[in-house]
Design a protein around this nucleic acid. Structure first.
Lengths: 204, 204
DNA sequence: TTTTACCTCGACTTGCTGTTAAATTTTGAA
DNA sequence: TTCAAAATTTAACAGCAAGTCGAGGTAAAA
């Protein structure tokens, strides 16, 4: 039940403690479903099956729980998409994979991703904001690079990469507001349809 | 200062009272900036320059203030865009105007529109949810019809109107999360760039 | 003038919030 | 078995939130 590695005395926190993960997962679901302010610390504690005070053994305060969810998730989604895009050939292919992987991560991490996308509350401490800004920017820059490279290679029209990138991410991020996992269509399928639309455009 | 018409004893509430409008405007700004749960009724009262109890003379409770903002704004944006689209010729032109008008309304009603788009809290009473759902659906159906007509007329490729409509609205709605009025570019200019992207696509 | 309807307020209640301190149990290694 | 560290709990606290109450004021109608 305990995953902490203490092999050499260093890297004590390589593996996040199970309880911590459990608390974060439960809290993320509640935040995603009810909203940060609406969820009381007591609600999280009850959902995990612990007393309220125990949560304060693992986390400094309620804000830290939320911050951990947001920062961890933003980092993971960026790295996940980077990994999936890495093996692709053309920039067109890269773009499709970027979008599909984004949606796949979203549906496989529906609660943490939703908590992130709803942007409930806000990170209070500057170093928290910096971390999430770093990964968010990196993610967006990765997308812009695909577009820029595609333009340079003659695959894409000379659109504004910043605008196109923002449009694409908008469609993916807005999924956090309407996508329901019990519907007939998976999130990554929507992403593929969006990709087709962005690539081919509307004009006949 | 008082706009209430009592001409015949009926239609007392044809013109919304000034104070009510003032409270709604101030509350919308606070909700948009801080979030529904974060803003206390006392904060709204202080910002308007009234006592807390006075707000309860105009509104049943805090939720009703928020509901009024959301419902009124959703109705107005739908009707505004309908009016702007009405005079257009081709479906391509209609689509561009739909997107631009949407963004224009957003930037001209930045606080109420942002409060709506952030979707903070949720409408509790069913009849409130129904009202906003009605206008939201009507708005989206208007967009889908443009796409469907465009396909039928041979102007557009045979894409899925529901998916394309959702993609387009996603880009416009997500503006509520990043657009800052003090930037160098107006919201409706972004909308035009998005429209160009959706129409022409990325592929060269 | 009297009445009526509206507008405004300060003081209050009630309930829940995040957070903490102290005490207790569990765990795991020596 | 011993014993310190980690995990957990119980029981409280202080603060602030939404919402209420009763009353005072005002302007115009009757």
């Amino acid at each position: 039940m305990e995953a902490t590695r203490k092999d050499k005395g260093m890297q004590v926190q390589v593996e996040v403690k199970e309880r911590e993960k459990e608390i974060l997962a439960v809290a993320a679901q509640l935040f995603a479903q009810e909203g940060f302010e609406t969820v009381a610390v007591r609600n999280i504690a009850e959902a995990v099956g612990l007393s309220k005070a125990t949560l304060y053994h693992y986390f400094k305060d309620k804000d830290e729980i939320y911050a951990r969810i947001v920062i961890d998730t933003m980092e993971k989604i960026c790295l996940y998409v980077e990994g999936r895009v890495a093996g692709a050939g053309s920039n067109r292919e890269r773009l499709v994979i970027f979008m599909e992987a984004n949606a796949t991560f979203f549906e496989e991490n529906i609660w943490t991703a939703t908590a992130l996308l709803l942007g409930l509350g806000g990170l209070n401490q500057p170093h928290q904001r910096e971390k999430v800004a770093y990964w968010r920017d990196r993610h967006e820059q990765n997308l812009r690079k695909i577009i820029r490279d595609g333009i340079a290679a003659g695959e894409f029209r000379p659109v504004n990469p910043a605008v196109a990138g923002r449009a694409i991410l908008s469609t993916l991020n807005w999924m956090g507001r309407w996508y329901k996992p019990d519907g007939p269509t998976r999130a990554h399928e929507f992403a593929l349809e969006y990709a087709d639309l962005f690539l081919g455009g509307l004009v006949a």
